[in-house]
């Protein structure tokens, strides 16, 4: 990709924010019938978000202009090579984020207890801790400690999962004397 186009790419985020600032007001209020209850001369519920959207738009516009300006003024050929970036394992990072999201999904279906056990094991393996004799005890003991602290002691209503897992979680809790 030519260098100038690459630099223009940096103008995409501010441009997107700017567009969002113009589109979002349409989605501000859900039901208009309540607007009838507002008296005359009052700021109303839209005043503050509108001010914020305006400020966001101004800042994004500034940013956009600056990025475009630097892109256009930059010489077509790179003057100096960009500093070599340290090798960064992007695939590992995105896999990590995906697993975190999947953990959120799993809690709702498997319940907190089983999802956490699974997540701890998967994360350790992903993070380079691969010895089964480390992974298993850390995951099992970790889950048990978390269950006793947050479900038994702090009585947090963490999800118990759905279907068979709900029954399984309740049986597990009863076996652990949490219930």
């Amino acid at each position: 990709m030519p260098r100038r186009a690459k630099l223009l790419l940096k103008a995409v985020p501010p441009a997107l924010i700017l567009i969002a600032a113009f589109v979002l007001p349409r989605f501000m209020l859900q039901n208009q019938n309540m607007a009838a209850m507002i008296g005359e001369g009052e700021a109303g519920p839209t005043f503050w978000p509108n001010v914020m959207l305006t400020l966001v738009a101004i800042c994004a516009a500034f940013w956009l202009v600056r990025e475009v300006w630097t892109a256009l003024r930059a010489p077509a050929v790179a003057g100096e090579a960009p500093p070599p970036a340290a090798p960064y394992n992007w695939r590992l990072a995105w896999a990590g984020l995906a697993i975190v999201i999947l953990y959120g999904v799993a809690i709702q279906y498997l319940g907190f207890a089983f999802a956490t056990l699974l997540f701890l094991a998967v994360w350790l393996i992903l993070g380079g801790v691969r010895r089964p004799l480390t992974v298993a005890p850390v995951a099992v003991i970790g889950t048990l400690v978390l269950l006793y602290v947050f479900v038994a002691l702090a009585q947090m209503p963490l999800d118990r999962g759905r279907g068979v897992f709900a029954g399984g979680t309740i049986e597990l809790y009863q076996a652990l004397r949490i219930y």
């Binding site: 997540f119 350790l124 992903l126 993070g127 850390v138």
Partner: peptide, 10 residues
């Protein structure tokens, strides 16, 4: 760090 991180996320 992997063990630390796993528990931070939970």
């Amino acid at each position: 760090p992997a063990i630390l991180g796993a528990f931070i996320i939970v």
